[in-house]
């Protein structure tokens, strides 16, 4: 059995493996697929609760992932943000000397979540660290234009 605590290295290796097989575009295709089949919980929460759904989703997942972060929700403004100080996924990859982090590892967060949130009428902005460190910032804002999401995110 692969424990869920061993998933991140398995995920990292999966990106590298798919790229070796069919190139970078195939990795993005996989991320799109995973977004559609796996992130149904985020989609359902945001569809039912609006911007508050982001808070509900990430407060659970980041707690379970033991991340270091500050998360803010302003329902009146329709804004949600995360300032990630230590991303456990990227952090653990960088700390494990037997593993080489996939070079575009952090980009999966951009593709997977954008694909859920934009079609529901939210803008999604992710600033990934340019210094290969486990930190980033994420901002989600209600735009009111549901249905205009990028369903074919590619390189």
């Amino acid at each position: 059995m692969i424990s869920c605590t061993e998933f991140i290295p398995a995920y990292n290796e999966l990106f590298r493996f798919i790229e070796q097989k069919q190139g970078k575009e195939a990795v993005v295709d996989f991320w799109n697929h995973l977004s559609d089949v796996f992130l149904t919980n985020l989609r359902d929460m945001v569809a039912a609760h609006g911007i508050r759904g982001c808070w509900m989703y990430w407060s659970k997942t980041l707690t379970e992932e033991a991340a270091a972060f500050t998360m803010e929700l302003d329902e009146e403004k329709g804004e949600f943000s995360i300032s990630m100080k230590y991303c456990p996924s990227k952090g653990r990859l960088l700390e494990n000397k037997d593993i080489e982090p996939y070079k575009d590892y952090c980009r999966h967060c951009d593709v997977l979540y954008r694909r859920v949130l934009e079609p529901l009428g939210f803008s999604y902005e992710l600033n990934i660290s340019q210094n290969n460190t486990p930190d980033c910032t994420l901002k989600v804002k209600k735009t009111g234009s549901a249905g205009k999401g990028n369903k074919d995110s590619r390189t």
């Binding site: 980041l62 379970e64 972060f69 803010e72």
Partner: peptide, 20 residues
């Protein structure tokens, strides 16, 4: 309509995310 802030340290929780 609410405004909320949550700050956590990595040591506040145990790393266990079964959705993986």
């Amino acid at each position: 309509m609410s405004k909320k802030i949550l700050t956590q340290k990595a040591t506040d929780n145990t790393y266990y995310h079964p959705d993986f």
